[in-house]
Design a protein around this nucleic acid. Structure first.
Length: 902
DNA sequence: ACCGCCGGGTGCC
DNA sequence: ACCGCCGGGTGCC
């Protein structure tokens, strides 16, 4: 199974099974304030060489000299890499370029004539200039430097011109030999232009190498087991004991970090040839990259309780029997309050302060507190799991640093055993200068959960995380690399792995060699990953046995034939839609009528479910006529709102995933808010819509809150007589057969359309099914009730749960069900998979059978084809290439054609 | 720097 | 000599 869950391009602000999407409308909190231009990590569409190193080519090389060595203490070895840095404020020369060694110490300057040529190139980011000192490192006054010029193809001429103006000319790199000696200079023979560095692996090979990268991690010396401390109230599974042993050993380890060797009293970095006298400290931590469902949270809780200082367990308060009741009661309060909190009634939350009154004075010196940072969507999961897995006889001080009344006193925070917070809160605090207590504390340990949220190195969240201080650092993620090696930098940098904390060294030593397929690049990355990562998948084995014996999962497709009357309505709507869409194609206005087209497709999809579903969606097209352009535009925007409010799981054309915080543009196209903000940021000052290239402006974006709309269209149409539909009949037939077979089997009935779920309710009632319901519009308290009720094995408990496709977060556990009926296909297959995993996960006792109802000869069949294409793309390769706006456009147009049979 | 460069001293053979 | 040449002073940007 591949751990590359992403499709080929784009960077989603989240991955498919987690995400900030559960926020819905958080009007009061910091969430929106931090969701500014850099609040999210999103597609990197900017054009400078620094951020777009994947498309950089090597223009050529040039020999120059570093002068002024005697004025600086930075030393270099032969063949060592050096960094060239512009120094525009140098009082002697505004063109100055200083040279630093790997440690960041200044070595000297680039000689002024050469600096004059480089300044313009570097300032305008036309090329990245990298240096290696080939020899002469022991020189007193000057030393040579071999420079490589990297940049985008289109900037090459400009760079060569600039150099030529100053009398320099690049030489091509010598093939074969890696980055060592070239001969070049002001004079010399004319060479033809250098080309791309040789690529030694195809993308396919690279991908499979990547898979192996993690495969090989399993069979290692990471098989020691360790019991958790007494305070861990849950028995750990064997693979969790292994993880605990590994984590404890990493925290207490004194080995050299990867790529460092001891050589006659010096410590050498074999990648950069950099040497230091002091022994470099190892990373006290690493990456726990187990698949979801293997218990990363539990293992981390065990680590916190088991490994405090010198391998001793955390000195937690042992509860005497008379105190026990009080504490348990207070624990309960905390987890209930968090539910309230998630509903945004933040003022109530000041109640958590009371937990501090159950305090105990600790006398340890040094930090005792573990800081856990996670997305809001899993915050309550952490609280639940602490509750579940801490032995009843112990009391942990946990402070949830969240909400407008959060306690910002560092003294209080650093007394806790655990402080839990979210990336957004952290970034918000960090944004307000000097008002971040989290940045004033030196933590015992920091744990980043779902750490891929800090993929974008330029995002505020990433910066906030990287500037925290801690002795031990952990990264928890199910998908360490989502798109490319690039994604690893933030994580590696967080772990304080020298010299990779500096992005230049990461690029030169790992990222570029890997993406360009330089021999040994992958091996390097592998050795790095291997030394700091533990990863097991669901199919990994412990002592020959599968780690988790998950029952089978089968997906069946059941075709449904529409009844004659349904077919007639369907065909007439299709015919009308096809005529209109055909016209758009002929006029070349397909994308201008995007909302209309989505509307047609939506109606067709709804008609496949039930004729009553689409009665509220207007079927009239925006026809040019008496309407002003502004009125027409408004109509389109309204249509888009209607589509979204139906519950349809539409996708964002930028990240190609389900919409997160949908916003509608002036031109009536819809994207994730973070995605479109990133487009605007990177294309400023004049951004254009990725689909139709019309002008894009933040002030024109209309936010579309899904769940509000859902509430207003809640199901039952007044006065309308209940009738069934072919699909409902098919479902009921299956449910009734199943009940005959085994009346205790529980089922999930899933649809994107909550209105459809309401219609199904009628049928369920008629046939006497006991059912419950879970959708996005329900209050948290009701959700919890619905889930508990459904999960119960008591006689008379519901056997059917009506579930909206996207309800609930990562943690939603519906293992009581072993059957899933998916009533309508989603655009995004990952959204379906995530939904299936709610019952096909740890705790599932039976084989899971999923039935997808697909109407024959309908848009649904075409959707299946597109789903398959997407799966292929996602599994194919993790090419680093992003699609251009025109490719996005073309893909969309092709999809529309395929969907409506054109 | 066992260099280059600068500017002052100097001036047939 | 408005030159050449010598040799001392000097030295990143």
């Amino acid at each position: 199974m591949s751990w590359l869950c992403r499709s080929v391009w784009g960077c989603s602000p989240r991955n498919f099974y987690t995400g900030e999407r559960n926020y819905s409308h958080n009007s009061s909190s910091e969430f929106y304030s931090s969701l500014g231009l850099e609040g999210f990590s999103v597609a990197d569409t900017s054009g400078t060489v620094e951020e777009d190193t994947d498309s950089a080519i090597l223009y050529g090389t040039l020999r120059g000299s570093i002068v002024g060595l005697r004025y600086y203490k930075g030393v270099v070895n032969n063949n060592e890499m050096v960094a060239l840095q512009r120094e525009p404020n140098n009082p002697y020369d505004k063109n100055a370029v200083k040279v630093n060694n790997v440690n960041g110490d200044q070595v000297g300057h680039i000689k002024k004539e050469l600096a004059a040529a480089l300044a313009g190139i570097m300032d305008n980011k036309l090329a990245v200039v990298e240096g290696v000192v080939p020899y002469g490192a022991k020189n007193v006054f000057t030393m040579p430097v071999q420079m490589s010029f990297w940049g985008r193809e289109e900037n090459k001429e400009a760079v060569l011109d600039q150099l030529k103006m100053h009398g320099f000319k690049l030489a091509p790199p010598l093939k074969g030999k890696s980055c060592t000696f070239w001969i070049s200079g002001k004079t010399g023979p004319t060479y033809s232009a250098p080309v791309h560095a040789a690529v030694h692996l195809t993308t396919e090979q690279l991908k499979s190498e990547f898979d192996k990268l993690f495969e090989d991690l399993k069979e290692d010396d990471k098989t020691c087991e360790m019991e958790g401390a007494e305070a861990v109230g849950t028995l750990l599974l064997p693979h969790q004991k292994q993880a605990l042993a590994w984590m404890v050993s990493r925290e207490n380890s004194d080995n050299l970090p990867p790529f460092w060797e001891e050589r006659n009293n010096f410590y050498y970095n074999i990648l950069t040839n950099f040497a230091v006298k002091e022994r470099p400290k190892n990373v006290l931590g690493g990456i726990l990259a187990d698949d979801m469902g293997l218990g990363k949270t539990l293992t981390t809780i065990a680590l916190i309780l088991t490994n405090f200082q010198d391998g001793k367990p955390l000195p937690v308060e042992k509860i005497t029997s008379d105190k026990s009741y009080e504490v348990r009661w207070k624990k309960k309060i905390v987890s209930q309050l968090i539910y309230v909190l998630l509903l945004n009634v933040t003022s109530v939350f000041s109640g958590t302060a009371s937990i501090q009154s159950v305090e105990k004075k600790y006398s340890e010196d040094g930090p005792r507190t573990t800081l856990i940072i996670c997305p809001l969507s899993v915050l309550s999961n952490w609280i639940d799991q602490f509750e579940q897995h801490t032995s009843q006889d112990f009391h942990l001080n946990i402070y949830i640093y969240y909400g407008s009344d959060r306690n910002k006193d560092p003294a209080i925070l650093s007394e806790q055993d655990v402080v839990l917070t979210t990336y957004n809160v952290l970034a918000t605090d960090y944004g307000i200068r000097d008002d971040s207590p989290l940045h004033k504390i030196k933590w015992l340990r920091i744990v980043l959960d779902e750490a891929h949220t800090i993929r974008n190195p330029n995002a505020q969240q990433t910066k906030a995380v990287l500037s925290l201080e801690a002795h031990r650092r952990w990264v928890l993620t199910g998908t360490p690399i989502q798109n490319s090696v690039k994604d690893l930098w933030s994580l590696i940098s967080f772990l304080k792995l020298k010299p990779f904390t500096d992005r230049e060294w990461w690029h030169r030593t790992i990222q570029r060699p890997v993406t360009m397929g330089t021999p040994g690049g992958l091996r390097r990355l592998q050795s790095l990953i291997k030394s700091i990562t533990l990863r097991r998948t669901k199919i990994s084995k412990v002592k020959g046995k599968p780690i988790l014996e998950l029952p089978e999962r089968k997906v069946l497709i059941q075709h449904v034939t529409l009844a004659e009357e349904e077919r007639q309505i369907y065909q007439s709507v299709k015919k009308e839609g096809k005529v209109a869409i055909n016209r758009f194609f002929n006029e070349g206005t397909v994308l201008a009528h995007y909302a209309d087209i989505l509307g047609v497709l939506l109606r067709l999809r709804q008609l496949c479910c039930h004729p009553h579903l689409c009665t509220n969606t207007s079927s009239s097209f925006s026809v040019a006529g008496s309407n002003t352009p502004e009125e027409l535009r408004q109509m389109l925007v309204n249509k888009m709102k209607l589509v979204l409010s139906s519950g349809s799981d539409e996708e964002c054309a930028v990240c190609l995933e389900s919409l997160t915080l949908p916003v509608i543009t002036h031109c009536a196209h819809v994207f994730c808010k973070p995605c479109i903000y990133e487009v605007i940021r990177s294309e400023q000052p004049n951004a254009s819509c990725p689909l139709c290239r019309s002008e894009l402006r933040v002030e024109h974006l209309v936010e579309c809150s899904l769940e509000e709309e859902l509430n207003s269209s809640n199901g039952k149409k007044g006065g309308q007589e209940w009738i069934s539909s072919s699909k409902i009949n098919a479902l009921m037939h299956a449910l009734i057969e199943l009940r005959k077979e085994n009346p205790t089997i529980k089922c999930l009935v899933v649809s994107q359309f909550t209105t459809f779920l309401s219609l199904i309710e009628n049928a369920l009632k008629k046939s006497g099914f006991v059912f419950t319901r879970l959708d996005g519009s329900m209050a948290q308290k009701k959700r919890v009730e619905a889930i508990q009720c459904f999960q119960s094995s008591q006689a008379g408990s519901p056997t059917v749960m009506l579930l909206s496709l996207k309800a609930g977060g990562v943690g939603l556990n519906l293992t009581a069900a072993s059957r899933v009926f998916l009533m309508d296909p989603a655009w995004n297959p990952a959204a379906e998979d995530q939904c299936f995993d709610r019952c096909h996960r740890l705790g599932q006792k039976y084989n899971v059978i999923i039935t997808k109802f697909i109407v024959k000869d309908s848009v649904e069949e075409n959707m299946l084809k597109i789903q398959n294409k997407k799966r292929e793309l996602a599994a194919g390769a993790f090419a680093t290439k992003k699609p251009s706006a025109s490719e996005i456009k073309q893909t969309k147009i092709n999809e529309i054609k395929a969907l409506i049979d054109l």
